Amino acid sequence: MGRKRFIVEFFLAFLAYAACVALSSYQVAVSEEGAGKVAWALLPVPSMLLIAWVVVRQLRAVDELARRIQFDALALAFLLTALVTFSYGFLETAGFPRLSMFMVWPLMGVLWMVCTIMGTRRYR
């Protein structure tokens, strides 16, 4: 899969995700407790799976060097995310405000991006 195609597919999948999050957030706020509210809360999950599928397809389509850079970046991002989240968890026991689990993926995503940039520069 070409880079341009990946960007278009990822953007469209992310757009679907953003729309689902907006609709889900509104519906969860106005829905009564029960199965319907749970279903609305889970509405973004299929679009998240679509994003994952687009990313995995791209990772399978790149050459060995690009795959290695991505694997190394993801592994380092995983480790850094674990260190940051566990460290903050200990700070919460000292009175820091509790953070939502929604903070974990954006942190890992940013770290993955930074580690990918660093890994790409390493092989230039």
Rank of each mutant, 00 (worst) to 15 (best):
K4M: 08
R5T: 09
R5N: 02
F6L: 11
I7A: 13
F10W: 12
L12G: 07
L12K: 11
A13I: 05
F14I: 10
A16Q: 08
A16S: 12
Y17R: 04
A19V: 15
A19Q: 07
C20I: 01
L23H: 03
L23C: 08
L23G: 05
S24K: 07
Y26L: 10
Q27M: 02
V28W: 00
V28D: 04
A29H: 08
A29K: 10
E32S: 15
G34N: 09
A35W: 06
G36L: 06
K37S: 00
K37C: 03
V38C: 03
V38K: 13
A39S: 00
W40T: 00
L42A: 14
L43G: 10
L43E: 05
P44F: 10
P44A: 08
V45M: 14
V45D: 07
S47Y: 01
M48T: 12
M48G: 15
L49N: 11
L50C: 12
L50G: 13
L50Y: 03
W53P: 11
V54I: 07
R60D: 06
A61W: 10
A61H: 12
V62G: 04
D63P: 01
E64F: 10
A66S: 10
R67T: 03
R68Q: 15
R68V: 08
I69A: 07
I69P: 06
F71K: 06
F71D: 02
L74I: 11
L74A: 13
A75G: 02
F78Q: 07
F78G: 02
L80Y: 03
F86K: 06
S87K: 06
Y88P: 14
G89N: 05
G89W: 02
G89P: 12
F90V: 08
L91A: 09
E92A: 05
G95M: 01
G95R: 01
P97A: 03
V104I: 15
P106E: 02
L107G: 12
G109Q: 06
G109L: 11
V110R: 06
L111M: 10
L111D: 10
W112A: 06
W112V: 05
M113N: 03
C115P: 08
T116Y: 14
I117F: 14
T120A: 14
R121G: 12
Y123E: 03
R124Q: 14
